[in-house]
Design a protein around this nucleic acid. Structure first.
Lengths: 224, 224
DNA sequence: ACCGACTGGAGAATATCATTCTCGTTGAAT
DNA sequence: ATTCAACGAGAATGATATTCTCCAGTCGGT
């Protein structure tokens, strides 16, 4: 996922088939090893993150933890940001699965949406007690440094919300002035961002609840 | 704004009044100079940001541009983050003024809110042609490194929106399940975050419009 | 069993910045 | 004029990411 594997795979007619097969056989093992190594880096980083509750680790830490080498790291990743991106994508994919599992059983699309919003909200808030979700705290950084990749990472969640929104629309439960896709994007981003910006519940009124966020996304602030 | 000016100002009875006045007179000029220097740093940073369209400048650049010295910089700022915070606060205050100026003339609170939302949206989107608003692109970083300060920086805007929301509530234009304060916070953050995450209008459907965002904030996605 | 290309490990070398420190200089209040 | 705090210039430090150099183990082919 991270290497520049671009030997001229083109012009398959220039090379005899046996050679291609030989090369492929030789490559397969290498690819397998590479995947295992990548996996080790990913696991190590994941462990460190959940351990110290922040994404402010050094590449060296990951390397040590995974018992591999700096060289190997940079051979498999274009840089730290790619590692983070990979973890981020993974976390969002898992979140998306989790939400789908929790919501898809419900009969009413509106209920599915409500559960999805509230669960996503909980998953994205900076909770000091959770295995993976502490990712959202660097999402902002990625958003400005690699917006395109972030968009890709958001894709599974967006698809899920779009799916639910489409179901809702079929029942006429959506305002006609918007499309399922737009509503999904707006809702998803609103929930994620609002959740993130609710870190310090130190003083008084701030701790927004999942219900409030759902209410806002579904009905806005204006009276009918 | 940035120095540790904490000489024992306490026990005013131990020093004769004339001495206090003398000290104050002596201090006044120094304070003036300090302010000018701070201003120069701020202006230089501002110029660099609008020039290269990013907040990824080095302290050295700011120092060179302002024709001052590193030492002076760290004498006036606790670090780069304080400089950014100052610029950020300033930008939000100006934005708040601008929005108030544009909206406060309207008779209907709902219209004021609409204008405020749409203008804020335009101000926060990563526009490659604008003098100061390119700040929003590092707001996320500040949000995770100095959430309390960011909250303070948001205060003027939040106050403005709360004011408008309160007016709207007086007309019964707000859903009864929320308070002006909550509605203001949710709306403001939604608008700002959504605007920011609309950087690359490269491909197809994404370019959300101010109208859509307003519609979403006011009415949500659900049909009446 | 031996050769040779490839892979990966250790860790030194670089590069970039923020931040601090040293050493004189200067400007303004007394 | 003297003094003292602030200043300028820029070197030193420290933390990290990233690259580079050297070397050893592996594995298929001979």
């Amino acid at each position: 996922m991270a290497q520049k594997t671009d030997p001229p795979v083109s012009s398959p007619s220039e090379e005899p088939a046996w050679k291609q097969r030989a090369v492929e056989r030789s490559t397969k093992a290498a690819k397998l090893r590479a995947e295992q190594r990548v996996e080790r880096f990913l696991d190590a980083a994941q462990a460190i993150i959940t351990e110290k509750g922040t994404t402010d680790f050094t590449v060296q830490e990951v390397v040590d933890r995974s018992r591999q080498s700096l060289r190997s790291f940079y051979q498999h990743f274009d840089g730290k940001h790619e590692l983070l991106l990979a973890l981020f994508e993974d976390a969002l994919r898992r979140a998306s699965d989790q939400i789908r599992a929790a919501a898809s059983g419900l009969p009413d699309p509106r209920e599915r949406l409500r559960v999805a919003v509230e669960l996503l909200f909980e998953l994205c808030r900076p909770d000091p007690a959770a295995q993976r979700p502490l990712f959202t705290d660097f999402a902002p950084q990625l958003l400005i440094s690699h917006p395109a990749e972030v968009k890709i990472a958001h894709a599974p969640l967006l698809a899920l919300f779009t799916e639910f929104m489409t179901d809702a629309e079929a029942l006429g439960a959506l305002r006609p002035s918007t499309t399922p896709r737009r509503a999904a994007a707006l809702t998803m981003q609103t929930v994620m961002f609002i959740a993130q910006s609710n870190g310090g519940e130190d003083d008084h009124a701030h701790p927004l609840t999942a219900e409030e966020v759902w209410d806002f996304c579904a009905h806005g602030f204006a009276a009918e």
